[in-house]
Design a protein around this nucleic acid. Structure first.
Lengths: 256, 256
DNA sequence: GCAAAAGTGTTTCATGTACACCCATGT
DNA sequence: ACATGGGTGTACATGAAACACTTTTGC
Protein backbone atom coordinates (compact mmCIF):
# COMPACT_ATOMS: atom_id res chain seq x y z
CA UNK A 1 0.00 0.00 0.00
CA UNK A 2 1.25 3.44 -0.87
CA UNK A 3 1.30 5.80 2.06
CA UNK A 4 -0.48 9.06 1.28
CA UNK A 5 1.27 11.70 3.36
CA UNK A 6 -1.65 13.99 3.70
CA UNK A 7 -2.69 14.25 7.27
CA UNK A 8 -5.27 16.98 7.40
CA UNK A 9 -8.46 15.61 5.88
CA UNK A 10 -9.32 13.38 8.76
CA UNK A 11 -12.07 13.82 11.27
CA UNK A 12 -12.58 12.26 14.66
CA UNK A 13 -15.97 11.30 15.94
CA UNK A 14 -17.38 9.73 19.04
CA UNK A 15 -20.16 7.17 19.23
CA UNK A 16 -21.85 6.34 22.52
CA UNK A 17 -23.32 3.06 23.55
CA UNK A 18 -25.71 4.21 26.28
CA UNK A 19 -27.11 1.45 28.45
CA UNK A 20 -30.10 1.69 30.75
CA UNK A 21 -32.02 -0.79 32.88
CA UNK A 22 -35.77 -0.70 33.44
CA UNK A 23 -35.85 -3.30 36.19
CA UNK A 24 -36.32 -6.19 33.82
CA UNK A 25 -34.24 -5.83 30.67
CA UNK A 26 -31.09 -4.09 29.50
CA UNK A 27 -31.83 -1.22 27.11
CA UNK A 28 -29.67 0.72 24.68
CA UNK A 29 -30.29 4.23 23.40
CA UNK A 30 -30.64 4.38 19.61
CA UNK A 31 -31.23 7.35 17.34
CA UNK A 32 -33.53 7.24 14.34
CA UNK A 33 -31.47 8.43 11.42
CA UNK A 34 -33.82 9.68 8.76
CA UNK A 35 -31.50 12.58 8.05
CA UNK A 36 -28.80 10.24 6.82
CA UNK A 37 -31.09 7.93 4.88
CA UNK A 38 -30.46 7.75 1.17
CA UNK A 39 -30.09 5.27 -1.60
CA UNK A 40 -26.67 3.68 -1.83
CA UNK A 41 -26.04 4.23 1.82
CA UNK A 42 -25.55 1.32 4.14
CA UNK A 43 -27.18 3.32 6.90
CA UNK A 44 -30.10 1.53 8.53
CA UNK A 45 -33.02 2.90 10.48
CA UNK A 46 -31.19 3.33 13.74
CA UNK A 47 -27.72 4.38 14.81
CA UNK A 48 -25.84 4.94 18.01
CA UNK A 49 -25.79 8.55 19.20
CA UNK A 50 -22.59 10.29 18.20
CA UNK A 51 -20.95 13.37 16.71
CA UNK A 52 -17.85 14.70 15.07
CA UNK A 53 -15.45 16.38 17.48
CA UNK A 54 -15.34 20.15 17.37
CA UNK A 55 -11.87 21.66 17.18
CA UNK A 56 -11.77 23.02 20.69
CA UNK A 57 -13.40 20.24 22.61
CA UNK A 58 -11.95 17.01 23.86
CA UNK A 59 -13.61 13.67 23.42
CA UNK A 60 -15.22 13.63 26.84
CA UNK A 61 -16.93 16.98 26.32
CA UNK A 62 -18.23 15.84 22.95
CA UNK A 63 -19.76 12.83 24.65
CA UNK A 64 -21.34 15.05 27.30
CA UNK A 65 -22.74 17.29 24.57
CA UNK A 66 -24.35 14.33 22.80
CA UNK A 67 -25.70 12.88 26.04
CA UNK A 68 -27.27 16.19 26.96
CA UNK A 69 -28.98 16.28 23.59
CA UNK A 70 -30.55 12.87 23.93
CA UNK A 71 -31.18 12.32 27.61
CA UNK A 72 -31.08 15.86 28.98
CA UNK A 73 -28.41 15.19 31.60
CA UNK A 74 -24.75 15.97 31.96
CA UNK A 75 -23.48 13.95 34.87
CA UNK A 76 -23.56 10.34 33.84
CA UNK A 77 -21.11 7.48 33.87
CA UNK A 78 -18.98 7.27 30.72
CA UNK A 79 -15.85 5.41 29.74
CA UNK A 80 -13.81 5.19 26.60
CA UNK A 81 -14.04 1.80 24.96
CA UNK A 82 -12.26 1.48 21.65
CA UNK A 83 -11.13 3.17 18.48
CA UNK A 84 -12.40 2.16 15.07
CA UNK A 85 -9.98 3.30 12.44
CA UNK A 86 -10.48 1.33 9.23
CA UNK A 87 -10.22 4.03 6.52
CA UNK A 88 -13.07 2.32 4.68
CA UNK A 89 -15.45 1.94 7.59
CA UNK A 90 -17.29 5.05 6.38
CA UNK A 91 -16.91 5.71 2.67
CA UNK A 92 -18.82 6.15 -0.57
CA UNK A 93 -22.34 7.47 -0.11
CA UNK A 94 -22.10 7.27 3.67
CA UNK A 95 -19.09 9.56 3.72
CA UNK A 96 -20.74 12.05 1.36
CA UNK A 97 -23.78 12.22 3.62
CA UNK A 98 -21.65 12.82 6.68
CA UNK A 99 -19.63 15.53 4.92
CA UNK A 100 -22.83 17.20 3.84
CA UNK A 101 -24.44 16.97 7.24
CA UNK A 102 -21.49 18.51 9.07
CA UNK A 103 -20.55 20.82 6.19
CA UNK A 104 -16.99 19.55 5.99
CA UNK A 105 -14.83 17.77 3.45
CA UNK A 106 -12.98 14.93 5.09
CA UNK A 107 -11.77 11.73 3.49
CA UNK A 108 -12.07 9.43 6.47
CA UNK A 109 -13.47 9.33 9.95
CA UNK A 110 -11.88 7.73 12.99
CA UNK A 111 -14.35 6.94 15.70
CA UNK A 112 -13.73 6.62 19.41
CA UNK A 113 -16.47 4.65 21.10
CA UNK A 114 -17.77 5.32 24.59
CA UNK A 115 -19.93 3.38 26.97
CA UNK A 116 -22.39 5.30 29.12
CA UNK A 117 -24.56 3.97 31.90
CA UNK A 118 -27.65 5.77 33.11
CA UNK A 119 -30.34 5.33 35.75
CA UNK A 120 -33.28 5.00 33.38
CA UNK A 121 -36.62 6.56 34.31
CA UNK A 122 -39.87 7.36 32.52
CA UNK A 123 -38.95 11.02 31.98
CA UNK A 124 -35.81 10.02 30.13
CA UNK A 125 -37.77 7.67 27.92
CA UNK A 126 -40.16 10.40 26.82
CA UNK A 127 -37.32 12.93 26.55
CA UNK A 128 -35.52 10.58 24.19
CA UNK A 129 -38.64 10.08 22.08
CA UNK A 130 -39.12 13.84 21.75
CA UNK A 131 -35.54 14.12 20.50
CA UNK A 132 -35.62 11.39 17.90
CA UNK A 133 -34.14 8.67 20.05
CA UNK A 134 -35.46 5.51 21.62
CA UNK A 135 -34.57 3.01 24.35
CA UNK A 136 -34.57 -0.45 22.86
CA UNK A 137 -34.10 -3.90 24.41
CA UNK A 138 -30.56 -5.03 23.62
CA UNK A 139 -31.91 -8.45 22.72
CA UNK A 140 -34.24 -7.07 20.04
CA UNK A 141 -31.81 -4.71 18.28
CA UNK A 142 -31.86 -5.30 14.53
CA UNK A 143 -29.70 -3.87 11.77
CA UNK A 144 -27.98 -0.60 12.70
CA UNK A 145 -26.27 2.03 10.57
CA UNK A 146 -22.65 1.71 9.48
CA UNK A 147 -20.67 -0.62 11.74
CA UNK A 148 -22.76 0.15 14.79
CA UNK A 149 -23.81 -3.46 15.31
CA UNK A 150 -20.14 -4.37 15.78
CA UNK A 151 -19.72 -1.55 18.25
CA UNK A 152 -22.78 -2.62 20.24
CA UNK A 153 -21.59 -6.21 20.49
CA UNK A 154 -18.17 -5.08 21.66
CA UNK A 155 -19.82 -2.85 24.24
CA UNK A 156 -21.93 -5.70 25.57
CA UNK A 157 -18.90 -7.89 26.00
CA UNK A 158 -17.08 -4.99 27.57
CA UNK A 159 -19.63 -4.33 30.30
CA UNK A 160 -19.90 -8.06 31.02
CA UNK A 161 -16.16 -8.01 31.74
CA UNK A 162 -16.34 -4.78 33.69
CA UNK A 163 -19.23 -5.98 35.81
CA UNK A 164 -16.91 -8.54 37.35
CA UNK A 165 -14.31 -5.98 38.36
CA UNK A 166 -15.97 -2.62 38.96
CA UNK A 167 -19.20 -1.53 40.59
CA UNK A 168 -20.84 -0.46 37.32
CA UNK A 169 -24.16 -2.10 38.20
CA UNK A 170 -25.04 0.77 40.53
CA UNK A 171 -24.76 3.27 37.71
CA UNK A 172 -27.75 1.51 36.16
CA UNK A 173 -29.86 1.08 39.29
CA UNK A 174 -31.87 3.59 41.30
CA UNK A 175 -30.42 4.59 44.67
CA UNK A 176 -32.51 2.01 46.46
CA UNK A 177 -32.85 -1.44 44.97
CA UNK A 178 -33.54 -4.99 46.06
CA UNK A 179 -31.05 -7.83 45.81
CA UNK A 180 -33.39 -9.45 43.32
CA UNK A 181 -33.27 -6.39 41.04
CA UNK A 182 -29.49 -6.34 41.22
CA UNK A 183 -29.43 -10.01 40.33
CA UNK A 184 -31.80 -9.53 37.41
CA UNK A 185 -29.50 -6.80 36.11
CA UNK A 186 -26.39 -8.93 36.47
CA UNK A 187 -28.13 -11.77 34.69
CA UNK A 188 -29.19 -9.44 31.87
CA UNK A 189 -25.63 -8.23 31.41
CA UNK A 190 -23.94 -11.60 31.78
CA UNK A 191 -26.52 -13.57 29.81
CA UNK A 192 -26.97 -16.38 32.31
CA UNK A 193 -28.48 -16.96 35.73
CA UNK A 194 -27.06 -17.03 39.24
CA UNK A 195 -27.97 -19.07 42.27
CA UNK A 196 -30.08 -16.66 44.29
CA UNK A 197 -28.69 -17.82 47.64
CA UNK A 198 -25.01 -17.62 46.72
CA UNK A 199 -25.61 -14.35 44.92
CA UNK A 200 -27.18 -12.80 48.01
CA UNK A 201 -24.38 -14.12 50.21
CA UNK A 202 -21.73 -12.61 47.96
CA UNK A 203 -23.49 -9.26 47.73
CA UNK A 204 -23.97 -8.97 51.49
CA UNK A 205 -20.44 -10.10 52.30
CA UNK A 206 -19.07 -7.39 50.01
CA UNK A 207 -19.44 -4.94 52.87
CA UNK A 208 -20.44 -1.95 50.75
CA UNK A 209 -24.04 -2.82 49.89
CA UNK A 210 -25.97 -1.76 52.93
CA UNK A 211 -29.60 -2.31 53.97
CA UNK A 212 -32.10 0.53 54.30
CA UNK A 213 -35.22 0.62 56.49
CA UNK A 214 -37.55 0.36 53.50
CA UNK A 215 -39.36 -2.65 52.17
CA UNK A 216 -41.32 -3.37 49.02
CA UNK A 217 -45.06 -2.67 49.26
CA UNK A 218 -48.03 -4.24 47.51
CA UNK A 219 -46.27 -7.43 46.51
CA UNK A 220 -48.04 -10.73 46.96
CA UNK A 221 -45.12 -12.37 48.69
CA UNK A 222 -42.65 -11.58 51.44
CA UNK A 223 -41.56 -7.99 50.70
CA UNK A 224 -37.89 -7.54 49.88
CA UNK A 225 -35.66 -5.08 51.69
CA UNK A 226 -34.14 -2.20 49.75
CA UNK A 227 -30.37 -1.79 49.74
CA UNK A 228 -27.98 1.00 48.82
CA UNK A 229 -24.49 1.07 47.34
CA UNK A 230 -22.04 2.85 49.63
CA UNK A 231 -19.35 4.27 47.39
CA UNK A 232 -17.02 5.33 50.20
CA UNK A 233 -17.09 1.91 51.78
CA UNK A 234 -16.46 0.39 48.36
CA UNK A 235 -13.39 2.52 47.78
CA UNK A 236 -12.02 1.60 51.19
CA UNK A 237 -12.61 -2.08 50.39
CA UNK A 238 -11.01 -1.70 46.95
CA UNK A 239 -7.85 -0.31 48.51
CA UNK A 240 -7.71 -3.16 50.96
CA UNK A 241 -8.14 -5.76 48.22
CA UNK A 242 -5.44 -4.07 46.16
CA UNK A 243 -3.01 -4.32 49.03
CA UNK A 244 -3.84 -7.96 49.52
CA UNK A 245 -3.50 -9.00 45.93
CA UNK A 246 -0.29 -7.08 45.49
CA UNK A 247 1.28 -8.33 48.67
CA UNK A 248 5.02 -8.70 48.68
CA UNK A 249 6.80 -11.69 50.08
CA UNK A 250 7.01 -11.52 53.89
CA UNK A 251 10.79 -11.23 53.80
CA UNK A 252 11.15 -9.57 50.40
CA UNK A 253 12.78 -6.42 51.76
CA UNK A 254 12.70 -2.88 50.41
CA UNK A 255 13.34 -2.32 46.65
CA UNK A 256 10.92 -1.28 43.89
CA UNK B 1 -17.06 26.94 26.35
CA UNK B 2 -18.11 27.90 22.87
CA UNK B 3 -18.18 25.00 20.45
CA UNK B 4 -16.18 25.71 17.33
CA UNK B 5 -17.89 23.79 14.57
CA UNK B 6 -14.88 23.31 12.42
CA UNK B 7 -14.04 19.68 12.13
CA UNK B 8 -11.30 19.44 9.55
CA UNK B 9 -8.11 20.77 11.12
CA UNK B 10 -7.54 17.81 13.37
CA UNK B 11 -4.93 15.14 13.04
CA UNK B 12 -4.71 11.72 14.57
CA UNK B 13 -1.45 10.23 15.70
CA UNK B 14 -0.30 7.04 17.30
CA UNK B 15 2.31 6.65 20.00
CA UNK B 16 3.75 3.26 20.88
CA UNK B 17 4.98 2.10 24.22
CA UNK B 18 7.26 -0.74 23.17
CA UNK B 19 8.37 -3.03 25.97
CA UNK B 20 11.22 -5.52 25.86
CA UNK B 21 12.87 -7.78 28.41
CA UNK B 22 16.58 -8.57 28.52
CA UNK B 23 16.35 -11.36 31.08
CA UNK B 24 16.79 -9.05 34.04
CA UNK B 25 14.92 -5.77 33.59
CA UNK B 26 11.95 -4.40 31.70
CA UNK B 27 12.99 -2.01 28.93
CA UNK B 28 11.10 0.56 26.91
CA UNK B 29 11.99 1.86 23.45
CA UNK B 30 12.58 5.62 23.39
CA UNK B 31 13.47 7.89 20.50
CA UNK B 32 15.92 10.76 20.78
CA UNK B 33 14.09 13.80 19.53
CA UNK B 34 16.69 16.33 18.41
CA UNK B 35 14.58 17.16 15.41
CA UNK B 36 11.81 18.54 17.58
CA UNK B 37 14.09 20.31 20.05
CA UNK B 38 13.66 24.04 20.22
CA UNK B 39 13.33 26.83 22.73
CA UNK B 40 9.87 27.26 24.17
CA UNK B 41 9.02 23.66 23.51
CA UNK B 42 8.23 21.36 26.37
CA UNK B 43 9.78 18.50 24.43
CA UNK B 44 12.51 16.71 26.38
CA UNK B 45 15.37 14.58 25.17
CA UNK B 46 13.40 11.42 24.58
CA UNK B 47 9.94 10.60 23.33
CA UNK B 48 7.91 7.51 22.59
CA UNK B 49 8.00 6.37 18.96
CA UNK B 50 4.96 7.58 17.05
CA UNK B 51 3.61 9.21 13.92
CA UNK B 52 0.69 11.04 12.45
CA UNK B 53 -1.76 8.81 10.60
CA UNK B 54 -1.65 8.98 6.83
CA UNK B 55 -5.01 9.40 5.15
CA UNK B 56 -5.22 5.93 3.70
CA UNK B 57 -3.86 3.87 6.54
CA UNK B 58 -5.58 2.65 9.65
CA UNK B 59 -4.08 2.95 13.09
CA UNK B 60 -2.67 -0.55 13.15
CA UNK B 61 -0.74 -0.09 9.93
CA UNK B 62 0.69 3.18 11.19
CA UNK B 63 1.94 1.35 14.25
CA UNK B 64 3.46 -1.36 12.07
CA UNK B 65 5.17 1.32 9.97
CA UNK B 66 6.70 2.95 13.04
CA UNK B 67 7.76 -0.39 14.50
CA UNK B 68 9.45 -1.35 11.28
CA UNK B 69 11.37 1.90 11.34
CA UNK B 70 12.72 1.42 14.84
CA UNK B 71 13.09 -2.29 15.35
CA UNK B 72 13.11 -3.61 11.79
CA UNK B 73 10.26 -6.06 12.26
CA UNK B 74 6.63 -6.21 11.28
CA UNK B 75 5.06 -9.05 13.17
CA UNK B 76 5.01 -8.09 16.79
CA UNK B 77 2.42 -8.01 19.52
CA UNK B 78 0.49 -4.74 19.66
CA UNK B 79 -2.70 -3.61 21.36
CA UNK B 80 -4.56 -0.36 21.52
CA UNK B 81 -4.45 1.21 24.94
CA UNK B 82 -6.05 4.61 25.20
CA UNK B 83 -6.88 7.88 23.50
CA UNK B 84 -5.47 11.20 24.64
CA UNK B 85 -7.69 13.98 23.41
CA UNK B 86 -7.12 17.10 25.45
CA UNK B 87 -7.08 19.88 22.78
CA UNK B 88 -4.23 21.53 24.67
CA UNK B 89 -2.05 18.47 25.11
CA UNK B 90 0.04 19.63 22.16
CA UNK B 91 -0.08 23.35 21.54
CA UNK B 92 2.03 26.49 21.25
CA UNK B 93 5.59 25.82 20.13
CA UNK B 94 5.15 22.07 20.26
CA UNK B 95 2.24 22.22 17.82
CA UNK B 96 4.17 24.50 15.45
CA UNK B 97 7.09 22.09 15.42
CA UNK B 98 4.82 19.15 14.67
CA UNK B 99 3.05 21.05 11.88
CA UNK B 100 6.42 21.98 10.39
CA UNK B 101 7.82 18.48 10.67
CA UNK B 102 4.86 16.83 8.96
CA UNK B 103 4.23 19.78 6.62
CA UNK B 104 0.64 20.18 7.70
CA UNK B 105 -1.49 22.84 9.37
CA UNK B 106 -3.59 21.29 12.08
CA UNK B 107 -4.88 22.90 15.25
CA UNK B 108 -4.90 19.89 17.52
CA UNK B 109 -3.73 16.32 17.63
CA UNK B 110 -5.57 13.38 19.08
CA UNK B 111 -3.31 10.50 19.96
CA UNK B 112 -4.15 6.83 20.18
CA UNK B 113 -1.62 4.96 22.28
CA UNK B 114 -0.49 1.42 21.64
CA UNK B 115 1.42 -1.11 23.66
CA UNK B 116 3.85 -3.37 21.84
CA UNK B 117 5.76 -6.28 23.26
CA UNK B 118 8.88 -7.66 21.61
CA UNK B 119 11.37 -10.45 22.17
CA UNK B 120 14.42 -8.29 22.70
CA UNK B 121 17.78 -9.36 21.31
CA UNK B 122 21.18 -7.77 20.71
CA UNK B 123 20.50 -7.14 17.02
CA UNK B 124 17.44 -5.12 17.88
CA UNK B 125 19.38 -3.06 20.37
CA UNK B 126 21.99 -2.05 17.79
CA UNK B 127 19.32 -1.59 15.12
CA UNK B 128 17.55 0.85 17.40
CA UNK B 129 20.73 2.77 18.10
CA UNK B 130 21.44 3.12 14.38
CA UNK B 131 17.97 4.58 13.93
CA UNK B 132 18.06 7.13 16.70
CA UNK B 133 16.29 5.04 19.30
CA UNK B 134 17.34 3.35 22.51
CA UNK B 135 16.14 0.64 24.90
CA UNK B 136 16.01 2.07 28.39
CA UNK B 137 15.25 0.51 31.78
CA UNK B 138 11.71 1.48 32.72
CA UNK B 139 12.92 2.28 36.22
CA UNK B 140 15.44 4.83 35.02
CA UNK B 141 13.30 6.76 32.57
CA UNK B 142 13.52 10.48 33.23
CA UNK B 143 11.61 13.39 31.70
CA UNK B 144 10.03 12.60 28.34
CA UNK B 145 8.63 14.88 25.65
CA UNK B 146 5.04 16.17 25.78
CA UNK B 147 2.80 14.00 27.94
CA UNK B 148 4.75 10.84 27.25
CA UNK B 149 5.56 10.21 30.90
CA UNK B 150 1.83 9.95 31.61
CA UNK B 151 1.42 7.54 28.72
CA UNK B 152 4.29 5.37 29.92
CA UNK B 153 2.88 5.13 33.44
CA UNK B 154 -0.53 4.18 32.09
CA UNK B 155 1.09 1.54 29.92
CA UNK B 156 2.97 0.06 32.87
CA UNK B 157 -0.22 -0.23 34.88
CA UNK B 158 -1.94 -1.63 31.85
CA UNK B 159 0.48 -4.52 31.31
CA UNK B 160 0.48 -5.29 35.03
CA UNK B 161 -3.27 -5.78 34.76
CA UNK B 162 -3.03 -7.69 31.50
CA UNK B 163 -0.35 -10.00 32.83
CA UNK B 164 -2.89 -11.44 35.24
CA UNK B 165 -5.39 -12.26 32.53
CA UNK B 166 -3.60 -12.90 29.25
CA UNK B 167 -0.40 -14.70 28.30
CA UNK B 168 1.47 -11.53 27.38
CA UNK B 169 4.64 -12.61 29.19
CA UNK B 170 5.54 -14.96 26.35
CA UNK B 171 5.58 -12.09 23.88
CA UNK B 172 8.55 -10.75 25.83
CA UNK B 173 10.44 -14.02 26.32
CA UNK B 174 12.46 -16.13 23.89
CA UNK B 175 10.85 -19.36 22.75
CA UNK B 176 12.67 -21.33 25.41
CA UNK B 177 12.90 -19.92 28.91
CA UNK B 178 13.36 -21.11 32.47
CA UNK B 179 10.73 -20.73 35.18
CA UNK B 180 13.12 -18.40 36.96
CA UNK B 181 13.31 -16.07 33.93
CA UNK B 182 9.54 -16.02 33.68
CA UNK B 183 9.32 -15.19 37.35
CA UNK B 184 11.89 -12.40 37.05
CA UNK B 185 9.83 -10.94 34.20
CA UNK B 186 6.60 -11.13 36.17
CA UNK B 187 8.28 -9.49 39.13
CA UNK B 188 9.63 -6.72 36.90
CA UNK B 189 6.17 -6.03 35.51
CA UNK B 190 4.26 -6.32 38.78
CA UNK B 191 6.86 -4.56 40.90
CA UNK B 192 7.02 -7.11 43.69
CA UNK B 193 8.29 -10.63 44.31
CA UNK B 194 6.66 -14.04 44.24
CA UNK B 195 7.31 -17.16 46.27
CA UNK B 196 9.42 -19.24 43.91
CA UNK B 197 7.77 -22.53 44.91
CA UNK B 198 4.18 -21.38 44.57
CA UNK B 199 5.04 -19.57 41.37
CA UNK B 200 6.46 -22.74 39.86
CA UNK B 201 3.45 -24.74 41.00
CA UNK B 202 1.05 -22.32 39.40
CA UNK B 203 2.99 -22.16 36.15
CA UNK B 204 3.24 -25.93 35.82
CA UNK B 205 -0.38 -26.52 36.76
CA UNK B 206 -1.45 -24.14 33.99
CA UNK B 207 -1.12 -26.98 31.54
CA UNK B 208 0.18 -24.90 28.65
CA UNK B 209 3.77 -24.29 29.73
CA UNK B 210 5.53 -27.43 28.70
CA UNK B 211 9.06 -28.70 29.43
CA UNK B 212 11.69 -29.14 26.72
CA UNK B 213 14.64 -31.54 26.74
CA UNK B 214 17.12 -28.72 27.18
CA UNK B 215 18.85 -27.54 30.34
CA UNK B 216 20.96 -24.55 31.22
CA UNK B 217 24.72 -25.05 30.76
CA UNK B 218 27.69 -23.53 32.56
CA UNK B 219 25.84 -22.52 35.66
CA UNK B 220 27.35 -23.19 39.06
CA UNK B 221 24.23 -24.79 40.44
CA UNK B 222 21.63 -27.32 39.43
CA UNK B 223 20.83 -26.36 35.82
CA UNK B 224 17.27 -25.23 35.19
CA UNK B 225 15.06 -26.85 32.58
CA UNK B 226 13.86 -24.78 29.65
CA UNK B 227 10.13 -24.52 29.04
CA UNK B 228 7.96 -23.41 26.14
CA UNK B 229 4.57 -21.71 25.91
CA UNK B 230 2.11 -23.84 23.95
CA UNK B 231 -0.35 -21.42 22.41
CA UNK B 232 -2.77 -24.08 21.19
CA UNK B 233 -2.99 -25.68 24.60
CA UNK B 234 -3.50 -22.25 26.11
CA UNK B 235 -6.40 -21.48 23.80
CA UNK B 236 -8.02 -24.81 24.59
CA UNK B 237 -7.62 -24.07 28.31
CA UNK B 238 -9.00 -20.57 27.86
CA UNK B 239 -12.13 -21.94 26.24
CA UNK B 240 -12.58 -24.42 29.05
CA UNK B 241 -12.19 -21.72 31.70
CA UNK B 242 -14.66 -19.53 29.85
CA UNK B 243 -17.23 -22.27 29.95
CA UNK B 244 -16.60 -22.84 33.63
CA UNK B 245 -16.81 -19.23 34.67
CA UNK B 246 -19.87 -18.57 32.56
CA UNK B 247 -21.68 -21.67 33.64
CA UNK B 248 -25.44 -21.48 33.88
CA UNK B 249 -27.41 -22.85 36.75
CA UNK B 250 -27.83 -26.62 36.47
CA UNK B 251 -31.60 -26.34 35.99
CA UNK B 252 -31.70 -22.90 34.40
CA UNK B 253 -33.31 -24.09 31.16
CA UNK B 254 -33.04 -22.62 27.63
CA UNK B 255 -33.42 -18.83 27.16
CA UNK B 256 -30.79 -16.24 26.31
C1' DG C 1 -54.59 -21.85 53.89
C1' DC C 2 -52.28 -21.42 49.65
C1' DA C 3 -49.11 -19.50 46.24
C1' DA C 4 -44.95 -16.87 45.52
C1' DA C 5 -40.84 -14.98 46.31
C1' DA C 6 -37.68 -13.40 50.32
C1' DG C 7 -34.35 -14.78 53.37
C1' DT C 8 -31.06 -18.19 56.26
C1' DG C 9 -27.57 -22.13 56.93
C1' DT C 10 -24.58 -26.16 55.94
C1' DT C 11 -21.47 -29.22 53.53
C1' DT C 12 -18.13 -29.89 50.05
C1' DC C 13 -14.49 -28.86 47.12
C1' DA C 14 -10.97 -26.16 44.81
C1' DT C 15 -7.53 -22.78 45.08
C1' DG C 16 -4.03 -19.93 47.18
C1' DT C 17 -0.52 -19.34 50.82
C1' DA C 18 3.08 -20.37 53.88
C1' DC C 19 6.84 -22.96 54.72
C1' DA C 20 11.00 -27.03 54.87
C1' DC C 21 13.68 -30.03 52.68
C1' DC C 22 16.42 -32.53 48.93
C1' DC C 23 19.05 -32.33 44.30
C1' DA C 24 22.48 -31.34 40.64
C1' DT C 25 26.22 -28.63 39.18
C1' DG C 26 30.83 -25.64 39.19
C1' DT C 27 34.62 -24.45 41.96
C1' DA D 1 33.09 -30.62 50.42
C1' DC D 2 30.53 -26.70 49.89
C1' DA D 3 28.04 -22.93 48.02
C1' DT D 4 24.32 -21.86 44.87
C1' DG D 5 20.10 -21.84 42.99
C1' DG D 6 16.74 -25.62 40.94
C1' DG D 7 13.10 -28.63 42.08
C1' DT D 8 9.49 -31.31 45.23
C1' DG D 9 5.96 -31.96 48.99
C1' DT D 10 2.75 -30.83 52.80
C1' DA D 11 -0.45 -28.48 56.01
C1' DC D 12 -3.62 -24.72 56.53
C1' DA D 13 -6.87 -20.98 55.40
C1' DT D 14 -10.00 -18.87 52.41
C1' DG D 15 -13.57 -18.60 49.15
C1' DA D 16 -16.79 -20.62 45.60
C1' DA D 17 -20.45 -24.02 44.51
C1' DA D 18 -24.25 -27.04 45.44
C1' DC D 19 -28.21 -27.60 47.87
C1' DA D 20 -32.94 -27.55 51.58
C1' DC D 21 -35.69 -25.34 54.52
C1' DT D 22 -38.28 -21.39 56.99
C1' DT D 23 -40.67 -16.70 56.68
C1' DT D 24 -43.76 -13.07 55.26
C1' DT D 25 -46.96 -11.07 52.43
C1' DG D 26 -51.61 -10.80 49.12
C1' DC D 27 -55.54 -13.17 47.77
Amino acid sequence: MQIIYQYDKQAISIDCVVFGFDGAALKVLLVRCKRFSSEGSSIGNYKLPGSLIANNENLDSAVIRVMEEHIGMRSIYMRQMDVFSDPKRIDGEDLKLVNKHYNVDVSRIITVTYISLVKLNSQMISYALKNGAEWIDVDSVKRLALDHNDILIKALNHIAQQLQQEPIAFELLPKRFTIKTLRTLCEAIMGFEFDSRNFRKKILSSGYIIPTEEKEVNVSHKPALFYMFDKKLYEREAKRRFKLSLRRLPCAGGGA
